[in-house]
Each structure stands twice: as structure tokens, then as C-alpha cells.
Write a protein that binds this DNA or RNA. Sequence first.
DNA 1: CGTACCGTTGAGCAGGCTCAACCGCTGTGG
DNA 2: CCACAGCGGTTGAGCCTGCTCAACGGTACG
Lengths: 234, 234
Amino acid sequence: MVESVEAGPSLRAAPFGPGIKEVIRLLSARQRSQIASIATCVNAPARTVVCREGASAQSVFIITAGVVKMFRDLPSGKRRVLGFLFADDVFGLAQNGHYDNTVQTITPVTLYRMRVSTLADTLRRDADLTLQFVCKLTHELRRALRHNVIIARRDAVGRVTMFLGVLEQNGLLDDSRIEIPMSRSDVANYLGLSLESVSRALGRLERNRIIAYEGRHGIRIVDRTRFDKILAAL
Amino acid sequence: MVESVEAGPSLRAAPFGPGIKEVIRLLSARQRSQIASIATCVNAPARTVVCREGASAQSVFIITAGVVKMFRDLPSGKRRVLGFLFADDVFGLAQNGHYDNTVQTITPVTLYRMRVSTLADTLRRDADLTLQFVCKLTHELRRALRHNVIIARRDAVGRVTMFLGVLEQNGLLDDSRIEIPMSRSDVANYLGLSLESVSRALGRLERNRIIAYEGRHGIRIVDRTRFDKILAAL
DNA sequence: CGTACCGTTGAGCAGGCTCAACCGCTGTGG
DNA sequence: CCACAGCGGTTGAGCCTGCTCAACGGTACG
């Protein structure tokens, strides 16, 4: 667990150009420490609300460890989860000086907080760093579009399967275990399903021996062939 | 129709900070001509494929007039429309040197095309301009998240109504007429509905005297109160 | 003037939502 | 130490809405 000799936060994204296929960490050591110098490092326990929809947006955040969910509460009382964010993700970008989503921690989280005005000043002086943010935002945009594709699917099993696929990509765990740190309810709100449907879909995937449970918050893909077939079925 | 004495393309977005509520055009006259100097202006008729998913990504595009759709074709043959883009929108941002969506014109379109490497060079030298792109991308991200909220909704009438709301915001026509330049099929693919459902939803809105048709590609909101009530029903 | 596509409308079916009960784990207080 | 309450998760029964298949009307374009 000698993971970060490096100082400061990082950004994870897939670059524009050819050559590099995977998602990588973008910032140089110098840029990381540069951001660290204008940010304060914060630890938050699980279930902490980091920023609230509609509140005045003072800060931008970069996650270095843990998982958070970004959501919006609708007039009807229903909650729409717009995304899950992990290490090296950024959030808190605002419109008109107000956050437009609420962000809440799911696991204990370590994050860097910086004032939006300070960050803007820094970016105005460093085009290279700003370009890194462009890259990161483009990556976020891709994720949002992918999310669109997922929830446009009609069948619950397909949506859940695609979600597991995303989690797998994201986790990058060496073994084949996929962590599902969030509750069924969060997953349901993310996928636009009822939590019962999520539960049933997972149950069906297990009964068909496509996945296997590893506790309630972890699964393993047992039959990759059929898993991929479901992914491609859309 | 003396609309653009200004030279070169622009970017439309809502800024971060407080003070300005609406979507505005970001670039200064200098920045517009700067981009114009590294770009070539192109006119394309309706139904032109501007860039194709998977193709090598040489260029980035900024629209100055017209409407395009961005979509992805799925293994099953179904098509998912990820968004409609209008004047002052940007597209062509790639991953790993390849476009990840196809973009096709709906109306005749005027756009600026620039090589991605040239644009990157320009951005690396101008932090201010790059920051404008950050702002624009954040705006696009917001739109994508809003799209997520829309299609997560289960009822067809609600989805169509929210779509009309977005079109209205977008059009900013002085009168209350809302243009629907795209086909029902495109709308359906955008909303994750069958085209029959879109047709039925519009029909129901008209029968209930909430909207009124103005030809097949334009409507007018007749009963704003009930329209807003449907919007808030989610 | 004809044809093909877009749009509308109808009938029947399927999959997901709602309501509801039940299970297992966790944490708390008697 | 145990009883109980609360929450997250699973499972079942019935309903409802949007999808599918199909036919038809209108308009734009060759």
C-alpha cells in the first residue's frame, strides 16, 4: 500500500490523441504540487454531503480516495443519481455561481478542495494545466453520454450488466472481483430502475451463472461470453 | 438579418460565476478571429455526415448556423441520438484519436473546421482561450446530465414535454413558437422512446390544448401553466 | 404524377412499477 | 447477554404503460 509518494491530486482521463488507449493520470508531478499548493486536503466519513444543489458554489473538489455519488432531487421527491465519482475525478463545477447537483460520499473519502476563483486564476496563468482540465472534462462528457446509452436501454438486466461493465473498467482491480460500494437504491436511481428491478436483475444474472455474488457488495463475472453477449445485445 | 458583422465562430455557454444567469456567447472578437484564422469555413447541405464514429479524428468543429444530430449506432442496429447541436456548439472531440460518435446535419449547416493538433497548439499558447473551452465543455456536460434526467423519466408525455422545454430554451425565438427541425424518429431515438410513442405524446398534448401544432415541425405552447405542471411532475 | 418516406392511429403483448411481506444484519438499550 | 427496532436487500402478485406489428394518410420530391 505504498501508493502515493506523489504529492497532491491527479486527474484521470483518456487523452485525445492516438497512441494511448487507456485511461491515465494526466498531471505531472509539478502540476500536482501546484494544485496542492492552492488546495486544502480534507477527509470526510461516509454519508457526508460535500456540496448541495443550489448552494453558493465556492469550491471545486478533486477526489484522491473513496467513492461519492452526484445526484439531484426532483420536485416529486424522487432522486436521480447522475453519476458515481472515484479517485482522480473532479466535481463542483457550477453554473451561475451555484452548484447544480448535490454530492454525497458513499465511502470515507479524501479530497482536495480549492476556491473556484483561485483555481481560475491559476488556470489563467497556465495554459498547459488548463488543457489538462479540458481533457478531463471531455472524459466526463464521454462518461455522461455513455450513461445516456445505458439508461436508454429498456431491459433491466441489460442496464445492470452495462453498469457492472462500467464498474469493472473503473475499478481496474487486478483480480476479477467487481466492487459495488453503493446501495441497490443508489444503483436503481442511477439506472432509472426501481430497486426491486435491480435486485431481480442481479438475481437473474446469478441464477443463470453469469455472475457470482461475493458478499452483497461485490460480484465476480463467471461467464464472460454470455456477459459480453448481453452487453452487445442493445 | 444583419446578424454577424463579427468574424469567426463563437461558443455558447453559461459562465461559472454569479452575475450572469443566461447562456451567452463567450469569445471576444479577438478570440473569434484567432480561431477563424486556424479554421476553414464549410457549408454542408442537410443530411451530410460530418464525422463518423470510429473514424480517425483529424478535426474539431464549431457550428455557426444550422442543426446537427450526434448519434451512435448500436450492435442491434438501433440508433441512439446523444444530442442535437446548434449554432455556437462544438463537436469532434475524440478519444484515442478516433471520433466516438457520428455527427450528421439535419438542416443545411455552416461550420468551422480546424485540425485538432492546430487547435491544441493554439490553446497551449492562450490560457484564456483554453479557459473558455473549459467553460463550454462544462456547459456541454450539464446538457448531457440534463438529458439523463429527461430520459430517466418513465412517462412518454413527460419526456416529450421536457424535450420541448429544452428546445424552447435553446431556440430563444422572440415569439412563442418552438421549432422542431428534426424528425419524430430522431426525437424518439433521443428520448429513448419509440417513434409511435412520441407521436402519441404530442397528439395527447395537442388534444389537451397544452400545445398547438404549427405545421409538423413547429408547435406553440398554449397552456403554460399545465405545461409547467407536467415539467415539474417528475 | 407517382412513389417513398414521414407521421398518425389502432390492437395486443410484455416487461417494469407498485404494493406488500419477509429475511438478515447491525447497532442500541434494557 | 439478549430483545428489538431499523435498514438494506430479496421475493411475490397484479397492474399499467410503452413496445411491437400493422395499416393508413399526407406531403415532399423526383
